[in-house]
Amino acid sequence: MNAGQQEREQLAYTPEEAAQRLACTESWLRDQAKARKIPWTRISGSVRFTPEHLRWILDHFEVAVRPEPTPKKRRKRASAPKNPDAHTASAGDTPVVSLTAKVPRRRREYQERAAQNGT
């Protein structure tokens, strides 16, 4: 082994050196290590990454190739229940249901109180 190979095969890398080797930012590495999402070691109170840690990061953040999407089968929509009281639209035979608004709670309470006092 020559001196150049020995320099590249360090035992542990600083976050800056590891970021250069992984082509990512140092802050991303520090954030991931702080959140304990990636392996790291503490040497003399400093965060360090071993070559095994770097390989783990590369393996676990690899994006898998997606298979070809299969065409989805269209499901038929359930038809509206037949209601003899429902109106039909002029454009077709689709039933149209008339909706009525709910009476607001305060108005309903006022009407109930007025009915009690009046009778």
Rank of each mutant, 00 (worst) to 15 (best):
E68G: 06
E68P: 10
R74I: 15
R36Q: 15
D59M: 07
R48N: 01
T70H: 04
N83P: 00
R77P: 08
T70D: 11
K34T: 15
T50G: 02
R74S: 13
I43K: 07
A64G: 09
R66G: 04
P67C: 04
W40K: 09
S44I: 08
N83E: 12
P84K: 04
K76G: 11
E68L: 12
K37T: 00
W56F: 12
V65E: 15
R36F: 11
S46K: 11
H53F: 05
T50V: 06
R48T: 03
E52W: 00
I57Q: 01
R48I: 05
S44W: 02
P69H: 05
R75A: 13
P81H: 08
F49V: 02
F61R: 13
S46D: 00
T70S: 08
I57V: 08
R36A: 12
L58T: 13
R77T: 14
V47R: 15
G45K: 10
R77S: 12
R48G: 03
E52C: 04
A64V: 13
R55K: 11
R55C: 03
W56M: 05
W56E: 05
E62A: 10
A78P: 07
R55P: 03
I38R: 02
E62D: 10
D59S: 09
E62F: 04
V65H: 13
R74N: 10
R66F: 05
